Simulated scan of single mutants.
Amino acid sequence: MLNKASVLLLFLFVVLFSSISAITLKEAFDAAEPQEGYDKFLQLNTGETYTGGLLIGKLFDQRTAQLYGEEGLNVRIQGNGAILDLQGSEICISCCENILDIEDCIIINGNVRFRGMNNSLFDQRPWGSVRYVTFYQPHDYGIRLQGAGENILIERNIIVDAVATGSDYIFTTGISTDWLPTGSAIAISVFTGFYGTPVIQDNWTFHYDTEANSDSLRHIIELCEYG
């Protein structure tokens, strides 16, 4: 019977071998066509590795207090067992009223983030789902809901060994703060009255470190958007 070390080595071998012919996730996104009501429907290939992160939507410029960048799109990532090596980046849908659905893939070295705003200037909250995704050593978090929550479904995912990378950043200022710790499998907004309550069900989270695994906040945590 394989022990944990053998399973890990086998997994890393598969990832490294498949990375030889990897394409970027952005290339797959750019090539994707509209389908089933989505502006971009990514049908990924089983066992193939896609590298790098993906930004959908706009960012906030603190100097002008305005949003900038490309308009959001409705996006579906049908993984079909593909490996997404985000290489320290993230899949982020940001400051838009669009949908991101991700399912049936393996994500390593990064995270999935829904980022929105709901204030006197903007009400730009993305929504969507993350289902049947296996996260291995995601950076910061497995899934982060930051200024979003309503109409978001997080269901039947496996999140193993989320990596604490230090303090997270307030996205409107770019300032890090100790009040935004990383290393949790799932991080949602504490302000559900402003951003809505996500549906979180039937997920499995685990840390190989016994102390981390015994800490409930390393599994799911509520965070303020502003530290």
Score class of each variant (00 low, 15 high):
5 A>M: 03
6 S>N: 09
8 L>M: 11
9 L>G: 05
10 L>W: 08
11 F>P: 03
15 V>R: 02
17 F>C: 05
20 I>R: 02
21 S>Q: 04
27 E>L: 03
32 A>G: 12
38 Y>S: 00
43 Q>H: 12
43 Q>F: 02
47 G>W: 08
47 G>P: 01
51 T>Y: 04
54 L>C: 12
61 D>E: 12
64 T>S: 10
65 A>V: 03
66 Q>C: 00
71 E>D: 15
72 G>P: 05
73 L>S: 14
74 N>P: 03
74 N>R: 15
77 I>H: 04
79 G>Y: 13
81 G>W: 01
82 A>S: 11
84 L>C: 06
93 I>V: 13
100 L>T: 12
103 E>H: 11
104 D>Q: 06
112 V>Y: 00
113 R>Q: 08
117 M>D: 12
120 S>E: 03
125 R>I: 13
128 G>M: 05
129 S>M: 13
133 V>K: 14
133 V>P: 02
134 T>E: 00
136 Y>C: 10
136 Y>N: 09
138 P>M: 13
142 G>K: 07
149 G>D: 09
156 R>A: 12
160 V>S: 09
165 T>M: 02
169 Y>Q: 10
175 I>E: 05
186 I>E: 09
190 V>E: 09
200 I>W: 06
201 Q>N: 00
205 T>V: 13
206 F>W: 15
206 F>C: 11
210 T>H: 11
211 E>N: 06
215 D>M: 00
220 I>K: 00
226 Y>W: 13
227 G>T: 04
227 G>C: 03
